[in-house]
């Protein structure tokens, strides 16, 4: 991980015209290739939208998006040649989002069924809906 290793082909500014002294030089053909691949993947994912494959629609759409994202990260954002710590930082942030998402979906799925629209049972009979400060009764009580 020392910088002599990561910059082995970048010869310390001795040849500044041809090579940057820092960073990685990505060949043009590779960038254009990745760009084309991204456009094609977009076309594919749009096309799949018009086919009904049920549950798999979202799987395909997100799968394609994931591939596109990885391409952008690796090549446009140079992660392929960059320090692995930068990749780690990025992955940790994504993992945290996924963690929060998982916990919240787990939680909300459980309590939505116990949530009901309007007042708790018996509140309506004990409270006059028109009393000042009283909660307002909803039109449709929750029915499972």
């Amino acid at each position: 991980m020392s910088h002599t290793a990561t910059t082995s082909h970048e010869t310390g500014g001795k040849n500044p015209g041809a090579h940057p002294i820092v960073g990685h030089l990505v060949p043009t053909w590779l960038l254009v290739f990745v760009g084309t691949a991204l456009l094609m993947l977009t076309a594919i994912t749009v096309a799949v939208r018009y086919i009904d494959i049920g549950e798999f629609n979202i799987v395909v759409a997100l799968g394609v998006a994931l591939v596109k994202a990885i391409l952008v990260c690796l090549f446009f954002m140079h992660l392929r040649w960059d320090r692995s710590f930068n990749t780690l930082v990025f992955i940790v942030s994504v993992v945290l989002v996924l963690l929060m998402m998982a916990f919240l979906i787990m939680d909300t799925r459980q309590y939505y069924d116990s949530q009901f629209d309007g007042n708790a049972p018996n509140v309506e009979s004990t409270l006059q809906a028109n009393a000042p400060g009283a909660p307002v009764a909803r039109f449709k009580p929750y029915s499972p």
Binding site: F103, M106, D107, Q110, Y111, S114, Q115
Partner: peptide
């Protein structure tokens, strides 16, 4: 979630 024990969070969490 330990701040939400009685906020309606599910027993599981």
């Amino acid at each position: 979630g330990h701040h939400m024990f009685i906020s309606g969070q599910s027993p599981l969490l």
